[in-house]
Write a protein that binds this DNA or RNA. Structure first.
Lengths: 255, 255
DNA sequence: AAGTGGTCTAGACCACTTT
DNA sequence: AAGTGGTCTAGACCACTTC
């Protein structure tokens, strides 16, 4: 059972000292995030109601509300009127396309077919050590795969995952698992991706890429370097995707 | 002076009929947006305080607050504690990089040098008619320019703007205007871009692009097709950018 | 009918800025 | 001191879902 959060010295409600002031609702938000991270409520599960949380943290329902509002805006939880608040999960239609921005030029988006090319454990290359904040010499799981839409190979991807976290991740488990990879990571390895950054460039297909994607060598491809983060902004995935943009495009909203 | 918004039949506060229910704060938000669109408060200006708006619309301050909260989240207004709420403008540092996602691989981003290549009025091509929702035969202003970073030409851009709105937009005005183009559009043509969608592909540099960007023909380039919208989701700009990604990348956040 | 999130209000006080 | 946005509370009622 958690107890009352406190501002510097101050009492109950809106009173607090000036320096290092932190709103109550942000403290509540941090406490809820901790519970999400620790797995007290698991992805897909129903969370305690706002009234219950207000009682538990000894604050008003409005304060809990504001905390949850922000968590919902960050896609950590999902609110459903009349039902309750649920922990977000990658096992949902709506989540599948949050990290897959490649859309068909015509027609509706649908799920790709995956073909695993290679899975192995290696010592993390220097670049991977840096981006995933590992220690030199740490092991990583390396994955290489091709994704096809309507039978046309479109994405060639390489992934690097911390070996520490993804112990026991084998080609077999990847192949037999149905659904998005982030769903597997969430369910089987307790690691939920909540945010990512991508750097995108145009490159020419090298021999290997040309072969896997079935295009001539030198064909312009989109190259997306992604770093994904879990709770606490810890980087836990590095991914390099090569996208064939003959019949697809990378869709982005500027707002 | 605006008057009280009303839900179907219901009275003042939270009472309303079930069908076609629309929260009060969304109605207030719509009214405020109208005032923004009509120019009652101009970009960069101070808006009436929450208390004033609450009185004007005859609702509680909390309801106005929630309306403004959403407008701030959509970057239509900017709140500043102790000072007030201001109409957002493209004449600010913070706004400059909201629509410019190309970042240097190393070092800090800075503003490009613009070189206007061509400005002319033409009949809108079919594709432009479609995307800008014009009538066949309507005139558009066509602009072609190159942007350089540190003296290196990096972006070759073509723009198509509705001739109706952008009357009198000449090469001279573009050249003499200092600052971001969206600032010019906002100040001189009363059209504020508030949102855009981009479709990104990898293409090979054609002869023209190769020449302007100083790269060999066939060099892979990022091609970004942008449609920008003003109030009411009206499309008012079409832009095709070719980005040289030798020393830059397109930065994106997935969240 | 009971429980959930969603809206609306009224009032208090805090943090920040300007006068 | 006065005005602004920001936080917090308490209570009422609404819309939606489930029992």
């Amino acid at each position: 059972m958690n107890s009352v959060p406190t501002n510097p010295p101050g009492e109950g409600a809106g009173s607090s000292a000036s320096p290092s002031f932190r709103p109550l609702y942000q403290q509540i938000k941090a406490l809820i995030t901790q519970s999400l991270q620790s797995g007290e409520w698991k992805p897909g599960e129903l969370m305690p109601s706002e009234v219950e949380l207000a009682a538990r943290f000894k604050v008003s329902q409005g304060t809990v509300r504001k905390a949850i509002d922000e968590l919902a805006a960050e896609n950590l939880v999902v609110r459903r009127q009349g039902k309750g608040t649920f922990v977000a999960t990658h096992h949902e239609e709506r989540a599948h396309f949050r990290f897959l921005r490649l859309m068909p030029d015509e027609g509706v988006p649908h799920h790709p077919d995956n073909r695993i090319i290679e899975v192995k454990r290696i010592r993390a290359p220097a670049e991977v050590v840096r981006l995933l904040e590992l220690k030199s010499g740490d092991a990583v799981v390396y994955i290489k795969r091709v994704q096809s839409f309507d039978g046309a190979p479109t994405i060639l991807e390489e992934l690097w995952l911390p070996g520490q976290i993804f112990k026991g991740l084998t080609a077999e488990r990847l192949v037999e698992y149905k659904g998005p990879m982030y769903g597997l990571f969430e369910s089987e390895f307790g690691t939920r991706m909540i945010r990512a950054t991508e750097k995108i460039r145009a490159v020419g297909a090298d021999t290997v890429a040309a072969q896997y994607l079935g295009v001539p060598e030198g064909t312009p491809l989109l190259c997306a370097d992604r770093v994904s983060f879990t709770y606490g902004d810890r980087p836990v995935e590095l991914r390099r995707g090569l996208y064939s943009t003959a019949q697809h495009h990378y869709q982005n909203e500027l707002s």
